[in-house]
Design a protein around this nucleic acid. Structure first.
Lengths: 118, 118
DNA sequence: TAATTACTGAACCATATGGTTCAGTATGTA
DNA sequence: TACATACTGAACCATATGGTTCAGTAATTA
């Protein structure tokens, strides 16, 4: 069976923690792109884009290939399965804590009634 | 209608990009905990734990409350809905790119056949 | 061959991160 | 009142991040 060992979640979550990189993912979702085209799209130097792409690559979210003088970037095959899995499993934990509406309401009060030393 | 405006994804994904913080979330999934108990559990100074908890708090993933001299931490009410939503939407993009097995195989070859200037 | 294009790498900068220690402050207990 | 507990904040440290500029190299094109 073909198995993808995803790079540790540290890398992928860190990669997703930047709006430009999330934008690059969205862009690649519409089709492959060169470093230059991404640089134009995101108003950034080639070097800047290259670094972002490298972060995405280390996280396994993007693959690149250089043909001639052009490096083409596309979404990686491993996808976001591992991240989705981690999050879904924890969502259950969160929900379990909040099956009663009371908790939510008391939290809201807490957030409103400020001036506390909290 | 009660609406939670989640702090930007930047904050929550960054918060999730650290194994200790993911561990704290798991721990709080089993019940509330004080700073001291988390520090014991994760073999870290109180100050260190406090910082991690603050990162989780800024991301809205954890709420804390100080009663007496003890600060109690628990999972935040907003949960991981926004993150799950972002990821699920992108999974479709990734899958759309890889509905053919060919692509996966060609990537695997690429990863194996190294020594290229890639 | 010369000029242009596309990328790359090193160096730099300011700021953030993940951790520590140390010196408090506030609370609870004997 | 004295001591212990639980946290807090400032200061420090090494390393990472997000960006830049500048000086290349390699591939096309004229």
């Amino acid at each position: 069976m073909v198995q993808y060992v995803s790079p540790p979640l540290d890398l992928s979550f860190a990669a997703l923690a930047d709006a430009t990189r999330r934008g690059i993912i969205d862009q690649l979702g519409r089709g492959e792109a060169s470093i230059t085209s991404l640089a134009e799209r995101f108003q950034m130097t080639l070097t800047g884009v290259k670094k972002h792409v490298q972060v995405l690559e280390r996280a396994g979210l993007v693959v690149t290939q250089k043909v001639g003088r052009v490096r083409t970037c596309k979404l990686g095959a491993r996808g976001l399965a591992a991240e989705a899995e981690w999050i879904e499993a924890r969502r259950k934990l969160f929900e379990a804590r909040f099956d009663a509406l009371d908790e939510i309401i008391s939290e809201m009060k807490q957030e409103q009634g400020n001036g506390s030393a909290d």
